[in-house]
Simulated scan of single mutants.
Amino acid sequence: MQDDSHTKTGETERQQYDFERTDPAVAVVKTLADATGKEPTEMESLFGHIDPDALNTLLYSSNGSEIDHVTTVTFTVEDRQVSVGSDGFVVVSASG
């Protein structure tokens, strides 16, 4: 899987990443930047919304699990709802 699966429909930005190549927290920042049209350095820090290290650990530990399920974490940042799953998908949509 490569870091190039990208879909944008209306107010929703969806990208798929290979978490062996891109940390989940970095994937969130990249997808948020695309969704908001901002540079990553212009955006709010993820630390105010979620612990990036904990997010990485949770999704790495769930990735490749023999159980057929996807662990998903959802939170709000930059007035956007962010959902990131252990399957590599990051979805950013307008909040509310």
Rank of each mutant, 00 (worst) to 15 (best):
G96H: 15
I67A: 13
G37Y: 05
R21W: 10
S65R: 12
V90D: 02
K38F: 12
T36M: 06
D51W: 02
G88Y: 00
G85A: 14
H69Q: 14
Q16W: 08
P40F: 04
S86R: 02
V29T: 15
F89H: 05
A54C: 03
P40Q: 11
R14A: 15
V28F: 13
T72Q: 08
H49A: 10
V26F: 01
G37H: 05
S45N: 15
H69C: 07
A54D: 13
R80V: 00
T76L: 05
E39M: 11
A27Y: 12
E39C: 01
L46R: 06
T36S: 15
T76R: 13
F75E: 08
T7V: 14
T41L: 03
A94E: 13
S5D: 09
G64C: 09
A25P: 08
V91R: 10
R21I: 10
D51N: 15
Q16S: 14
S62V: 02
E42D: 15
G10W: 05
F19W: 07
K38R: 12
D51V: 01
M43R: 12
P40N: 10
P24I: 04
D68M: 07
E11Q: 13
G85Q: 00
L32F: 09
E13K: 02
T9E: 12
A94C: 00
S61W: 02
F89D: 03
G96T: 11
T76M: 10
P52K: 06
D18M: 02
E42I: 05
D34Y: 00
D53M: 11
H49D: 08
V92W: 14
A94S: 10
T12D: 05
Q81A: 07
S95C: 07
T74L: 02
S45H: 10
V73P: 02
D23A: 15
S95W: 09
G48V: 03
F75D: 06
E44P: 06
G64F: 07
L32Q: 07
H49E: 14
Q2Y: 02
F75I: 06
P52V: 07
T22F: 09
Y17W: 08
G64E: 08
T72G: 01
P24K: 04
D87W: 01
T41F: 07
V70N: 11
I67K: 13
K38S: 12
T76P: 06
R80L: 03
V84C: 01
G37P: 09
M1C: 04
T72W: 01
S93H: 03
I50G: 13
E66P: 06
D53C: 00
S61V: 02
A35K: 13
K8I: 09
